[in-house]
Simulated scan of single mutants.
Amino acid sequence: MLVAFSVAPSTSDDEGGVAPAVADAIRLVRESGLPHRTDAMFTTIEGEWDECMSLVKACVDAVAKHGPRVSLVLKADIRAGRTGELDAKLTRLEDALNEG
């Protein structure tokens, strides 16, 4: 499965930034060993249901240390028996664009 998620404290430091809290979550993603990609809006991870959801929970818990309230946005693409979709979906898209 692919899980795209965004997690951040609902309140931020005095300058309005959430980067330190988000960095704590992304550090966990990088240490997890799961295939992942982070962009300006979401982090996408690939793995089995339990390992993905466990990692999302750990990220929420890490961000919760920075404030009393956490915002989580999550979208999942669940396709049993598929692996490598983090890159394969983009390859299929590029192929379709090149055909057109």
Rank of each mutant, 00 (worst) to 15 (best):
I78T: 13
T43Y: 03
S54K: 12
A76C: 13
S71A: 12
T91C: 00
I26P: 06
K89N: 09
I26D: 05
G17D: 08
A58L: 06
V22C: 08
L34T: 12
I45H: 01
T38K: 11
C52Y: 02
S54L: 06
V60P: 00
A23P: 02
E85K: 13
E15I: 04
T11A: 08
K57A: 13
A62V: 00
A80F: 13
E94L: 14
A40P: 09
T43P: 05
E46V: 07
T11V: 11
E51M: 08
P35Y: 04
W49S: 09
A64F: 01
P20A: 09
I78F: 05
D14R: 10
V63D: 00
D13G: 13
D87Q: 13
A88M: 05
L34E: 10
K57L: 12
E46L: 05
L34N: 05
P68L: 01
V22W: 06
P9V: 04
I78L: 14
T44M: 04
T43N: 06
V18P: 01
L28W: 01
G33V: 11
L72C: 08
A96L: 09
L90T: 09
A21L: 02
V63K: 00
V29N: 07
P20G: 03
D77Y: 10
G81L: 03
D77N: 13
G33W: 07
L90F: 11
L93Q: 06
I78H: 13
D50K: 10
V29I: 14
A80R: 14
V70R: 01
D77F: 08
S71W: 09
H66A: 06
V60Q: 14
S10G: 15
I45K: 02
R82T: 03
D13Y: 09
G33R: 08
L93T: 11
D39G: 12
A25F: 02
A64L: 03
S54C: 06
V22L: 09
C52E: 03
L74F: 06
F42D: 14
S10I: 10
A64M: 06
E94D: 12
E15T: 15
L55Y: 01
A76I: 03
T43D: 05
T83D: 14
T83R: 15
K57Q: 14
L55F: 01
V63R: 00
E51V: 15
V56S: 01
V60A: 08
T11L: 06
T43E: 07
P35K: 09
D61Q: 11
H36Q: 09
D13C: 04
L55D: 00
A80K: 14
A25S: 06
I26T: 10
A76S: 15
A58N: 11
R92A: 15
D77S: 13
R79W: 05
A40F: 12
T83V: 12
P35S: 10
K89P: 02
K65I: 00
L93M: 13
E15C: 09
T91L: 11
A88D: 15
D87T: 13
L72K: 00
M53F: 15
D50C: 05
R30L: 08
E48C: 04
D87G: 11
A76Y: 01
G67V: 08
A64H: 12
C59T: 00
M53P: 02
A76T: 15
D39E: 11
G47T: 02
E31A: 15
G47I: 07
D77L: 12
A80M: 12
R92Y: 01
S71K: 09
V18D: 04
E46N: 07
P20K: 10
G81C: 03
E15P: 00
A25R: 02
V29A: 08
